[in-house]
Design a protein around this nucleic acid. Structure first.
Lengths: 185, 185
DNA sequence: ATTGGCATGTAACCAGTTACATGATTCC
DNA sequence: GGAATCATGTAACTGGTTACATGCCAAT
């Protein structure tokens, strides 16, 4: 039941709709928590029923109405409690790496294409994280930034995502070059 | 239904019991696919029923009997087909990073302790991967190694896991030092 | 004496995925 | 004219987690 806490943590940044969360979750949260739109809509409803969030409906013309959710005091308290509880070990499920593991009995070309896809995706994501980072730092050094801001959490998680994508890029490049060298065998 | 393929990919290394798989899955596979023992026992049974694996019971004295599973031709074929199908995007669920995101409204001390826990765990894992790597290379350079071996898959996934743990260590160290500098606020 | 490792399993429950549905608007 | 975006939802299903159970052996 920790999708709930991922949502609460995201809402610290400000109110958001299910749709907002569904596309990219939030820039940084997307790196360590995945969820389908259906999960989000359902969970937000349950959270509202339990008083962890409040909804306000915003009527828009030329667009469907949206329900913007924001944290309640109970929501903040629940999130704070969550930080004290022991965390479950990280769950990861990466089909691409299953393919790579099976590379030698499978179709090398398909796997190569898949790795190339990862490489491109990771470059896009890295560029995005770098833009977000530049916006946060706004010309200051990290030290200056840390002295001024009140929330370090989002910056730290962003840096983790950034490092992850950098490693994806390095790794994918290495993997492709290895595969190219052996394509003649 | 890709737990199945993770298991098939692991069994390429040789026969294994549910118990073998459950503790650490296989050294490299553990990095990109998590599963509980219950999942494994259940899935192995289903896979046997569908002819993707065969079991042979090994009677041991002074220990419970075990069922060692190995790939069938159908299993290999299924795995090969899998490499051709498009992979689902990586699913990741990391409670620690949810905590870090919520750091500033939560209990900073608990979060710090959790990060320190990650740091230690990652150091242990990295050391393990380095040992496995050294055993595989057996004194040769990567180039020499690639020229000789027939399976690159496991080496590439191992390298991905290794890079991941290295990044965990860097990041955790940075995060702890940032938190220490602000502990007076 | 008790903890931990070996080795397997059942059952109940909870979380996540997939398919289907709606309807206006904006972009190509 | 057709696809993509905005915005929400229901229902059926599949996959994953937790709790419980067994029993012997080795080590502390």
């Amino acid at each position: 039941m920790a999708l709930r806490h991922a949502i609460l943590a995201t809402l610290l940044e400000g109110e958001a709709s299910g749709y907002d969360l569904s596309k990219g979750f939030d820039a940084s949260v997307a790196n360590f928590w995945m969820a389908t739109p259906q999960q989000l809509y359902k969970e937000l409803e349950a959270m509202q029923a339990q008083g962890l969030v409040t909804a306000r409906i915003v009527e828009q013309d030329r667009r469907p109405n949206k329900r913007l959710y924001s944290l309640t005091e109970a929501g903040r308290a629940e999130l704070s409690e969550f930080t004290k509880r022991p965390a479950k070990p990280t769950a990861i499920r990466d089909e691409l790496l299953v393919k790579v593991q099976a590379l030698d009995v499978g179709d090398a070309d398909s796997v190569r294409t898949a790795i190339a896809g990862l490489l491109e995706l990771s470059r896009t994501k890295l560029a995005r994280y770098d833009r977000i980072r530049a916006r946060l730092l706004a010309g200051r050094t990290e030290e200056e930034y840390f002295d001024v801001i009140d929330r370090v959490g989002p910056y730290l998680t962003l840096m983790r995502g950034r490092a992850f994508e950098k490693e994806n890029i390095r790794w994918a490049e290495q993997a492709l070059s290895v595969l190219e060298h052996r394509s003649g065998r």
